[in-house]
Design a protein around this nucleic acid. Structure first.
Lengths: 152, 152
DNA sequence: CTTTTCGGTCAATCATGTTGACGATCCTAG
DNA sequence: CTAGGATCGTCAACATGATTGACCGAAAAG
């Protein structure tokens, strides 16, 4: 496999997964969530975060993170709450709809993975995942991937 | 490996490759080419194409493709030529600099792949590539990946 | 020859990111 | 306790890359 083909296939595999995920999400009540939003939601899920923390995790400016939060709040996935301990901070938390979306996404992704494992054969798939894990261990944080594609 | 982690690692592996590629390209005389441009150049390389054909291959509108060609032409990687057989068409061709860039990219990607294969062990890497190939066979065309990440 | 299709471009708009600046708030050293 | 600095969130201006809609000239179809 030439080096260029390797890169193309990695992207293709990722895109196939994400496209299938969002097709299914759209069909199940979440037509207005975009791939990029998933990163933000996953970064918000573990615990309430501030805009600055979110920006750091996503690798964007705090202004861009704030804008993403605006969109997610408009669509009902997150809410801003005041921090009683610090009047500067506005904590972003998941709404029930946001939690539902994450749970649904996890379930769908799990099924997509199972389908691929079954189609390929469990042993071959395990070997594939083993290689992928080795390839990506030591890479940057999991979320710093939203906007790196663009530029002049 | 949970389904979400699978997707994240696929993207991470791709991003690592492309980041390393463009770091190296920048250091070797091509600091102003962007990841998205690579897709366009590869789509142009096999034979002269029109803007509409390019748009189809990249999965964007003809206006967006035309704009990409503008940028690549400004930077000396492609040139527009008139088609003597059809006055409507403006064929886009690679310049020598464009061909040099593609050759260099292929060489660098090949080395990046070899490094990863050596680090992991040739047998494990072969198994990994075998799985990846199986996973992505039957997927969409190779280039329809430039702009799918964005949206409202 | 007329009508339709096709290729390319212009214009307006949208989505997403950036930098720079700024008020409000908190923290900390004196 | 207070003054200075750091942090959080936001506003404004701008850049980039994409979109839709409209249009003109040229080719193809009838």
């Amino acid at each position: 496999m030439p080096g260029g083909e390797l890169a193309l296939r990695l992207l293709g595999a990722f895109r196939d997964l994400i496209d299938a995920l969002h097709m299914e999400l759209a069909a199940r009540g979440h037509p207005d969530v975009r791939p990029g939003h998933g990163f933000a939601l996953q970064a918000i899920a573990p615990a309430p975060v501030t805009g600055s923390e979110l920006a750091g995790r996503l690798g964007v400016t705090k202004q861009a993170a704030g804008r993403t939060v605006d969109v997610l709040a408009e669509r009902g996935y997150v809410a801003r709450t005041d921090d009683p301990a610090d009047a500067r901070r506005r904590l972003v938390v998941l709404t029930p709809r946001g939690r539902e979306l994450l749970a649904l996404s996890g379930e769908i992704l799990e099924r997509l993975r199972s389908q691929r494992a079954a189609a390929m054969g469990p042993e071959r798939f395990a070997a594939f995942e083993d290689g992928l894990r080795t390839l990506t261990d030591g890479g940057g944080g999991p979320f710093a991937a939203a906007g790196w594609f663009v530029s002049s």
